[in-house]
Design a protein around this nucleic acid. Sequence first.
DNA 1: GCCGTTTTCGGCCCGACTGTTTTCAGTCG
Length: 559
Amino acid sequence: MAALLEIQGANPFRVRAYRNAARTLDALPRSVADMLAEKEDLSRLPGIGKDLAGKIAEFLDTGHFLALEEVEREVPAGLVDLTQLPGLGPKRVKVLHEELGIRNLTDLERAARKHRIRELAGFGVKTEQRIIEALSRHASEERRHKLADVEEIARFYVDYLQAIPGAKVVIVAGSYRRRKETVGDLDILVTCKQGSPIMEGFVEYDEVDTVISRGPTRATVLLRSGLQVDLRVVAQASYGAALYYFTGSKAHNIAVRTIAVKKKLKINEYGVFKGEQRVAGKTEDEIFKAVGLRYIEPELRENRGEIEAAKKNRLPRLVSMSDIRGDLHAHSNATDGHDSLREMAGAAKKLGYSYLAITDHSKRVTIAHGMDEKRLRRQLDAIDRLNSRLDGIRVLKGVEVDILADGTLDLSDSVLRHLDLTIGDIHSGFTLSSDKQSERIIRAMDNPHFKILAHPTGRLINQRPGYEVDMERVMEAALERGCYLELNAQPDRLDLHDVHCRMAKDMGLKLAISTDAHSTSNLEYMRFGVDQGRRGWLEPEDVLNTRPWRELKKLLARP
DNA sequence: GCCGTTTTCGGCCCGACTGTTTTCAGTCG
């Protein structure tokens, strides 16, 4: 709706209102249909007023969104795809539609190849060529990159830039710094001595495929990997303001700028200004202070309540890697892991942990060489023997037991009762309805040995969406039964989502941040889980494995 | 279309780069 209204030339603030509302809905941990069914007032959500609440209800009720259908009669829906192409915004798309009758990407491609676009006022040969190039790339790219994949690219680029003469600070801002699970592009911020050839160096980097734009303070390139990278150069005096500004998120920035405006201040990437005078800019701390806010960690900057919390000095003290005392989900070579019990224990000890749970698969997961009761008993004996020889690290006896289709567990209670930790999860039957899936999981939690629900949605980032499940219902059930949920730290999973972590925290449900390591090196995935947890406002007390074993053991004892 | 320590109307974040212009609109982040 926002995109179509924009093409139509509607009031830009009305357009923004739709975008804001969409962002709010997108970040909700629960289904809007459920909220309405429970008679919640949608207009209490930020950015959603009486009108939009009504339209949302109308859509859920009737399947129709009349206002949208009306706009679509005037502006073909296919034009929205056009605005996704670089260089094409609402104004130009409107011209393309009105002058050439273009209705979708196919029409656009045809017109570009016939060179009809270059004839239009405000367009030219270059624009036409860019459109053709963009169309040929469109299908292959157009997706966000996993944070872990981007990290390596970022590290090399940063090291390279750092080595350019005159470079001072080189830092990656944007969603990368906010530790979002996926990153659209890299925003690199640089301060340097005057006359440093940093911009030349940036565009001449080996991995650069195309230079999209380049000015004295800002440039954009496309790497061979398909990742877009922006560089911004600022003076040292503006470093904090620029870092703050380019870290975003956009929604957060807009909200804080609005606060500044009310205080007769102006925030831009060069500083905070009172009239002509710069009153802050060198550090992020200064920026926050200037607008009367406590320092907000980058992971929280999503305009999801952090600004109000900062005003009231109620920000969470976020969990960090140094709080983590152990890992509660890991595999050995008894099933599909690469390394032995002893090797895994040694690696965990090296990380400074005091415990590591070995939670190998159960028999149903044949592809992972899952264990039956007999093999699991042998492994428990092996862990006992290992523990008696180990010093400074305790291996917890665990299992990752499959939750079967009917909600029963894949191993009998007679063996589960001997374990320190039973984690359960779903590896099949992904297509059940939300109700059925939720009931299946809750049934599994009814088993008194069940402790932690692992990777609760089953999603794989950029590969497969999670199964349908009513997360609030599952969390409530866990809370009632003394069970917990996992935040799986695998960079492909990061399951729970940040908004679900927040929901758990708000409900008082503790989470385990676990790596699901299949090798000693995988244990290092913990930091991705911690980052995700921080985005979900988790504090050390919200996380099971910040506890020493003595305390953790009590928490794991079902009432 | 939303929102309220300028509250029910009148505001709504801000600057850089490009291409097509000949002083700037459009796009982008």
